Simulated assay, not measured.
Amino acid sequence: MSTEFTIPGATGPGTQPTEPDGQALDYMEMPREMATFDLPIAPEPEDTEGMEAGKAKLNELAAGLAAYKVGKPAFVLELGDLEPADLGLVNQILGEGEVSMVSGVNIQVQEAVFAGVWRVLHFDAKGVIKRDTIEVAEWPDAVRDQVFANAATTCALAEDPLPPSVFNAPSLLSEIAERVADYKPGDGAHSINLSLLPHTEEDLKYLADKLGVGSTIVLSRGYGNCRVSSTQTKNVWWVQYYNAQDTVILNSIEIINVPEVVCAAQEDIDDSAERLAEIMEIYK
């Protein structure tokens, strides 16, 4: 039973900042194949003898899942006190779901096969894991707390004169600035579908420069791939969908605290609670 925990797509070229200030974060490489997800294969009860701490942690997780309501602070479990065998059991039961995240240089997240259950690794400045947790939430509080902590609260507007071949970016920046100024927590997303609007490559580069490149990247895999990237402008995200050939089929900007594609719904969390409780029945 492996005790290692990795985040698919969260390492390799483009996933870590290249500048000391952590700002120049490129995009993570997209998977080449569509991923499918199944329930983990639970070990037989006789194979978990001596792993009482791991089973206790999973039962605590099941109780937290059953009680959790979307919109509340995350239910957090610390895993740093588990022995390798117990941690291996937790890893095996949780499995790997379809959403992974990188936030700055210090947080990596992998959703479990149970929607709304997030494995969160916290790293120190040297890249060593300093905290290992599970969060039950619509999306992890650890990421929520830092994604826009240092972001601009207003959107930069276009300047005169414009660079060559920049035509439609100024009007888009004006729209984004208005929506950012008006946004209140709980508001629905305002989406700007760039795929349906006329623009040049220079327009997109100008937009990216004015919005800034954020340090949080979310990759959702499943029936196609979706990459969600924060900007350095508060509540502004790039949302891109790819087909099986890694071609962008939808490119949009969303103004919201977190895009819906990232979040687990209450019914998903309730279902996760039922499924985990069923699995843990065999260990009683």
Results as ranks from 00 to 15, higher is better:
residue 75 F to N: 06
residue 168 N to A: 10
residue 234 K to E: 14
residue 141 D to V: 03
residue 76 V to C: 07
residue 57 K to I: 11
residue 2 S to A: 13
residue 162 L to W: 12
residue 142 A to K: 02
residue 280 M to K: 04
residue 226 C to W: 00
residue 73 P to F: 05
residue 130 K to G: 03
residue 88 G to Y: 03
residue 109 V to E: 01
residue 20 P to H: 05
residue 189 A to P: 12
residue 238 W to H: 14
residue 76 V to T: 15
residue 196 L to E: 13
residue 139 W to R: 04
residue 49 E to I: 10
residue 24 A to H: 14
residue 195 S to Y: 02
residue 186 G to P: 08
residue 189 A to S: 13
residue 40 P to M: 07
residue 249 I to V: 15
residue 149 A to P: 10
residue 160 D to I: 13
residue 63 A to D: 09
residue 160 D to E: 15
residue 201 E to A: 14
residue 103 S to D: 04
residue 96 E to H: 09
residue 204 L to R: 14
residue 89 L to N: 07
residue 233 T to I: 07
residue 99 V to P: 06
residue 53 A to V: 06
residue 226 C to D: 01
residue 186 G to A: 07
residue 9 G to E: 02
residue 243 N to A: 12
residue 208 A to I: 12
residue 70 V to G: 02
residue 131 R to S: 08
residue 5 F to C: 01
residue 102 V to W: 01
residue 137 A to W: 00
residue 140 P to Q: 03
residue 146 Q to G: 11
residue 44 E to A: 12
residue 212 G to M: 14
residue 141 D to I: 04
residue 98 E to V: 04
residue 277 A to F: 01
residue 242 Y to L: 13
residue 241 Y to K: 14
residue 79 L to I: 07
residue 203 D to R: 06
residue 205 K to L: 08
residue 198 P to F: 06
residue 281 E to I: 03
residue 78 E to P: 03
residue 278 E to D: 04
residue 40 P to G: 01
residue 63 A to C: 00
residue 147 V to Y: 05
residue 116 G to H: 01
residue 175 E to Y: 08
residue 249 I to K: 14
residue 153 T to M: 13
residue 159 E to P: 07
residue 192 I to W: 07
residue 110 Q to V: 05
residue 174 S to F: 04
residue 27 Y to W: 11
residue 232 Q to G: 00
residue 271 D to R: 01
residue 256 I to A: 12
residue 119 R to M: 07
residue 152 A to D: 15
residue 198 P to T: 05
residue 161 P to V: 08
residue 156 A to I: 05
residue 175 E to V: 10
residue 212 G to D: 15
residue 215 S to K: 15
residue 33 E to W: 06
residue 185 P to Q: 09
residue 273 A to V: 00
residue 256 I to F: 03
residue 272 S to D: 04
residue 159 E to A: 08
residue 238 W to C: 10
residue 143 V to K: 00
residue 7 I to T: 10
residue 3 T to I: 04
residue 47 D to M: 09
residue 16 Q to H: 12
residue 36 T to A: 11
residue 50 G to M: 06
residue 143 V to D: 01
residue 259 P to I: 10
residue 65 L to C: 11
residue 251 N to D: 15
residue 248 V to L: 14
residue 70 V to I: 07
residue 262 V to I: 14
residue 139 W to A: 08
residue 177 A to P: 07
residue 279 I to P: 00
residue 25 L to Q: 13
residue 58 L to D: 02
residue 201 E to L: 13
residue 42 A to H: 03
residue 75 F to Y: 09
residue 2 S to C: 05
residue 93 I to G: 11
residue 201 E to P: 08
residue 153 T to H: 13
residue 236 V to Y: 02
residue 222 G to T: 01
residue 243 N to H: 09
residue 267 E to D: 14
residue 80 G to E: 11
residue 97 G to F: 07
residue 245 Q to P: 02
residue 212 G to A: 14
residue 149 A to C: 11
residue 282 I to G: 00
residue 75 F to D: 02
residue 256 I to T: 15
residue 8 P to D: 02
